[in-house]
Design a protein around this nucleic acid. Sequence first.
RNA 1: GCCGGUGUGGCGCAGUCGGAAGCGCAGACGACUUGUAAUCGUCAGGUCGUGGGUUCGAGUCCCACCACCGGCUCCA
Length: 681
Amino acid sequence: MGAEVIVRLPDGSAKQLPAGSTALDLAKSIGKRLAKDAVAAAVDGAEVDLTCVLSEDAEVAILTGGSDAGRTVLRHSTAHVLAQAVLDLWPGAHYAIGPAIEDGFYYDFALRGGATFGEEDIKRIEARMLEIIAEDQPFVREEHTIAEGLALFAQQPYKREIIEGVGSEADLAVEAARDMAPGEFTVSVYRNPTARVVDHDGGFVDLCRGPHVPSTGRLGHFRLLRVAGAYWRGDEHRPQLQRIYGTAWESAQALAEHLHRIEEAERRDHRRIGADLDLFSFPPEIGSGLALFHPKGAMIRQIMEDYSRRRHMSSGYQFAYSPHITKAELFEVSGHLQWFADSMFPPITLEEGHEYRLKPMNCPFHILIFRSRQRSYRELPIRLFEFGTVYRYEKSGVVHGLTRVRGMTQDDAHIFCTFEQMTGELESLLGFVLDLLRDFGLEDFYLELSTRPEGKAAGSEEEWEAATEALRVAAQAIGLELVMDVGGGAYYGPKISVQARDAIGRHWQVSTVQLDFQLPMRFGLEYVGADNARHRPVMIHRALFGTVERFFAILLEHYAGALPTWLVPTQVVVLPVRDDHDPYAEHVAVTCRHAGLRAEVDPADEPLGGRIRRWKLEKVPYVLVVGDDDTTSGTVGVNARGSEHPDRGIALEAFVAAVAAEVESKGSPEKGGGRWSSGPR
RNA sequence: GCCGGUGUGGCGCAGUCGGAAGCGCAGACGACUUGUAAUCGUCAGGUCGUGGGUUCGAGUCCCACCACCGGCUCCA
């Protein structure tokens, strides 16, 4: 090693530094601002502390708090500060893991005597954290052998368990692994030597892979958000720990923006919109997770379902109907009672001894329709579609608005085809799915491939392998990003799910496509082939909306309640200025209705301003005002949703034609600026 | 199911130390006849989630249950 090292920077330039220089020295040599913003460094792609000595020539990048990698470091370091505060305030507490997560971090604790955190505790902890940050405690990295590590954390069972797992196969599979040192024989810890923690000598120390900021003074733009219970290593059979969630950012402004995004998501909450717009409700009288659709919500749902039916009809599907309840034996045959019973409502036992069950899925019924007579290869593929309402006994803590309910309607279909037809069916199906989703205004997708659920799967590994491969081929042919979801398949087969990103970047699982060799076998399905021999069909389960309820909720959140004109319950409201304009207002409404629009009149028995306000809050796409000028010239004053100013004097025919076209193209008033070019602004 | 939190007219909220249940919006009725995001007035509406308990007295304190909210596990 010479007296100097040469580092290459991300912009391609190179820099010479004296031997023994640290990453922080490098940052300083580039600029003051960079040194101030730096939180860690990447040497040949590996993230390290700023205090790391650059001992050989390397590619080095300085990570700042403004980058994703830099924020991860900030959040991870803030999690350590949280742990230090909690250990100081709750003597004898055990600390488990505290990783950075999307937009923030958390840390899991077990308090002495099973104590729990309350709301007020959050404030105490935050105050203690601010003190720790004000003290500007250094983070110092240490390497220890496994034995030393175990001794260091003699009083900390969760840390010991993590250390004992270092290098094991299981270690790599658990989330905690991200929190750990690489390498088989050592563990790294970070120490805040100047920390004062009750009952702890030598400051505060935590097991951690790093890197961390040089000192706590670099932190500060954080907020603790909530407390929650969380199972140790995500296993509900293991102890439940107390988790504290927080968020942390590189600047006060970034923190404020994040808190604003949280508010924005709350504004879009479909439960709130559903109540405000009188779309649906969940009366306690009918039970948790069971929804009532009110007339306006039902109208939207009806439009969604009607459109879906039309698309299915033109895509070669046949319709089916099946009952909500059936003899339990059907679910013995299908395997649901073996694999899915936890999610089913308990049996209804009749006097003569038969047990009945509410259906959790529609597939067995469609199978019986297939099996009702002998089938020829000439009929295949057979595609049976139904809006099938199913009931699942979801655990009490998981129901959530319309996205997680106990009674739900799937836009469900089962395709029975030959093995040879399978790949083609899957590919055309994925095309159909994406086409339909785009009609509803979702545009940004990726696919997820869910594989065999270990221990919860029917059938052989070979069958699963073949089915998974067929799905993979179809998914790749579509050309969208594909991510793996290991072990996430249904008990009878692997699945592709379509994930949609909404207007504010959140993603939702919508469509699912599952390939199934098991149920055709269990039900002994057959068709007669061209060779006059009997063959077993392949089955594809698929739902495009997923469930109508959930898809409805996704649309409400995506559009923040301002649905495209074709989906909205009332498209046009006509407001007469005075009551002698009522007849003309009625004429306008009738003209709209003749063009197929949903229009109503709000008569002039209260002031115009109040009426406008009410319908605007209802998010009606077009609020028309008609007065003296309009009655004489056959025009309307148009208030398009989303625009600040009305367009007066628009010819009625021009308005109706434009809105009818907007409905046809599935557009929204927000996207239709400038249509009324004939009228003055 | 588990952890934490919350339940007060249809909705949003106040209610102090355990001592007479309130406000705004919405609703009904009346007046106002209006050109672009809240017209004025009057009235009605609550066994304070449900059931127990403590107390001279409970919206308020305790217990159980129900529902909801945020998470964990699970999941469309």
